[in-house]
Structures are given as C-alpha cells and as structure tokens.
Write a protein that binds this DNA or RNA. Structure first.
Lengths: 240, 240
DNA sequence: ACAAAAGTGTTCACGGTACACCCATGA
DNA sequence: TCATGGGTGTACCGTGAACACTTTTGT
C-alpha cells in the first residue's frame, strides 16, 4: 500500500525547494495607418538599454495565470474586456538576466483608435510589427510566435474585429487582413469568402467623408465577439 | 531620462516577492490493442486518493522548461528521444491543493510495445483514453486539451508514426488514425490521402503471420521523424 | 469453398483562385 | 471629365467524400 501524503505535508516539503519566477508577456496588437502595430515599452534593464520589450509583469501569488495578462492590459492601457489568447510558455534558464523567470505569452487585439486607450507611461508606444527587428530578452521570438498564431487563426475565427471600430467597410476589413497576413488578397474572392462565413451584418449605412464612392458599412454579427475571461484549454479550442 | 536598473538589482528586489511553483505534466500517449492509451499514475495525495493523475514533476532551478518533460519521460519510462510538444499552461490559483502550482502541459507519443519502455513504478499503467472519466487536479482538462491538439495536428503533420513500430501496414496506420480521431475512415480515401502526402516508403515487404491476405509494409520516409529536443515557439510552428 | 482483409477508380460537390468590367461619388 | 475605389459573376482546378468489386492468402 502506498503511503499517502496530505497536501499540507507536501506543501512543506516543497517550500523553498526552488524559486522560479513566473511572468506573463503580452503581445498587444492594434491596427493603425493600414499597418499592424505592437505595443512596446523601452526596457528598463541596463542589459537591454535602448531596446524595447513587450509589456509584462510577474504573476501575483493570488492571481490566476490567465488573469495576469488582463491586469497588465488594464494597467498599461486602461482597457478591460480585451481579446486575449494564451500562446506559449517560454522557459529557458538563461532567458532572463535577472534570474530564473519563466514567461507565458499572450496576444491581445485592441482597437487603439476608438477605445479609450490610455497609455500610462510615455515610454510605451506603438511600433509597426513589420519593422521590429530586435527586442529585449527573447521577446522577438515571442512576438514572432504570436504573429504566426494570429495568422493561422484569423481566417477561421472571427477575431480580427477586435482591431476595428464597430462599423467598418469591407475594404477596411480587407486592408486589415492584408496587413496581418502580409499578402495581397483579391477583392472579389475576399468578399465572397467573408460573406460566406456569416460573420457580418449589413448596417445599410455608408461610409462618409471619403474622397471616392463610399462603401457599405458592416458590423460583426452579435454573439461572435470573444472577449472577457479566457477559456482554458480544450474549451478554447472547442469554441467556434 | 529613465533610471535604469541592473539585472542584479532587479534580482534582489524580486527575491521573495512571491513563491509560485512550476511543474510540467506529460500526457503520454501510446497505441495498443487498437486503442489510444495514456500513461497514468495513482495519485499519492490524500485529497485525490484512488484517483489517477498524469506524470509530472516540478521544474528544477537549472533546467529549461522544455527539458523537464524529457526528464519526466526518461525517469518514468526509460525512454529518450521521444516526441514531445508543448500544449498549454494551466495556472488557476486553486488548481493544486498543496499551494500555488502552475503547470505546463506536454503531450508525448511513444511506441509502448516495441521500444524498451520500462515503467519504474508498478502504480504507473496504461489506460484507454476513451475510458478516462476523472483525474486528479485539473488533469482531465489537460488530457482533453492535449487530445484535441493531437487530433488537430495529426492529418497535417507526420507525428503518429511515433506510436507505431518502424514497419507497419496501411491498415495498421488507418486503425491508429481511427483510434485517435474517434471516427471511422473510408479505406480508399484514406490511402489516397496518405499516399498523396509522400510520407511513406514502400518497403516491398509483406506482413507475416496474419490469418488473411498480408498487406504491404511501409515505413516513414527518412528525415520526417521529429524527435529529440523541442523547437520553441515560431520554429515549432514553421516546421513542415 | 469460404472467410477475411488487401487493393483499386470514378463521380460529385464544394471551396479556392484567376480574372475584367461597369458604377457611384467627389474633386 | 476624371480619378478613385465600390461592387459584382463566371470558368477552372484541386481536394475531399461517397461508393463496390476483384484479388490474395490462410483455414
């Protein structure tokens, strides 16, 4: 027969066993000036002076892992109810010069222009994703991983609407897809694919103040917006 | 101008800030008796007496996160160079009764019959995945998440061959796919799809000792076997 | 001869791609 | 009237799904 430990006993034996810090890093995407942007902060570590890094923080003792990126988002941008998705956990021993820090990466999609986004520090700024070459820590790899995941997901799941205002034209939507995927799309085929998905509602309104023929405006069909608390694990994959 | 901290200073200020334990849990799949199996151990926690759990361990201070599941596999099964894939990190505050433990889940594919697998404890055993109802901790959710990821990946990437002996017939391969996906497949369509992928090499050998017409034997085309160290992040997604 | 599984081709529906013209608006 | 982008349809191709009969071997 096995000797069973109680959780309390195990807790004692584990205490001080090791001390690994756990953080979350957020790849916060937005869409501005026809380009995909990512929110970066100037690194405050001497080792990475002059470089930028993702927004992140240590996970607090009483905080669910999946809550931490919401807190980071709220603290840094003032935004609640953003779209967030866990991507990967990076845990090489030498990834952080301060010591052993393992980080779980999330990406987030926000509408930087039309939500009441408030950047809390002036060393936080938007950067073109395509122009980011080097980041502090392993953050370039994290960015690449998140971008890749975004690209894989974007045609099958209605998530990019988190990057747009409530009303948008098909042209704006197509420009956004092209910015994310980094390729050009055929307009007719794009419209067929999108309308076939039944994601959109025709608002019977037109663009205004455009220097050409105005396009029709659409919004995301109610009930498709995925925001608020993260689903974990299999639920996340099951959803739509 | 910003005041820059050195990493050494940051290390001090973070020390004792919190104490979260980090573990890995392995969903070790195998294929036996025409069924997908998972390796489970009897829980040694009183809270989960009589229940099973996944094989896992705490990540060691000097150990890369992605190394930990290899160590667990080796310690528990004697196997090296197994196929491993990081899936998701689970970090709800209350998921572990011993305290704050965040766990990164991996799945692994092993050939239980034909490799020199040595189970190190007799309370470790194979279970039919389809028959697993309840596990200790949140391990059922972890199992479900990993199974889902396996199912999504299996048609696009040549990974299931890690579950088979080197030589196999198309019928065995199809049975394996059916066990993983939980559905029946049309034989002609299956063969067309598989052969179209150029994953297989015809060995010009036949099955032996079968009580019916023997089928041809195949092996995985050299160079496609993905094993050994994990690629991280974007590299993992880029590969094939 | 029979049982059991191996092996093989065609048809159809669907989704993706390539491609060109007319229309509405503002300047 | 011109420039700019809005809006639309058709033909082709490749992939996946449905579907049945003949062949080979062991008993």
């Amino acid at each position: 027969m096995l000797k069973l430990k109680t959780a309390a006993i195990e807790k004692i034996s584990h205490k001080d066993y090791f001390n690994i810090a756990l953080s979350v890093d957020c790849v916060i995407f937005s869409y501005q000036e026809k380009a995909l942007k990512v929110l970066l902060i100037e690194s405050d570590l001497k080792e990475f002076e002059g470089m930028h890094s993702l927004l992140g923080d240590l996970v607090k003792p009483g905080e669910d892992l999946d809550e931490a990126p919401y807190r980071v988002l709220q603290e840094r941008t003032g935004l609640k109810d953003v779209y967030l998705e866990q991507v990967h956990t990076f845990g090489n021993v030498e990834r952080h010069p301060s010591g052993r820090v393992i980080t779980t990466a999330y990406f987030s999609l926000v509408d930087a222009k039309h939500s009441k986004l408030k950047l809390t520090h002036n060393d936080v700024a938007w950067h073109n994703v395509a122009g980011v070459n080097r980041l502090a820590f392993d953050h370039k790899m994290i960015l690449d991983t998140c971008l890749q995941q975004l690209r894989e997901k974007v045609m099958e799941h209605p998530i990019v609407f988190n990057l747009l205002p409530e009303k948008f034209s098909l042209r704006e939507l197509q420009d956004l897809y092209e910015a994310i995927l980094g390729i050009e799309l055929d307009r007719r085929n794009f419209r067929k694919r999108i309308t076939a998905k039944d994601w959109l509602v025709d608002l019977n309104e037109m663009e205004e103040d455009v220097p050409h023929r105005p396009g029709k405006l659409y919004k995301l069909r109610p009930g498709l917006k995925k925001t608020g608390r993260l689903l974990s694990g299999v639920e996340q994959k099951m959803a739509v």
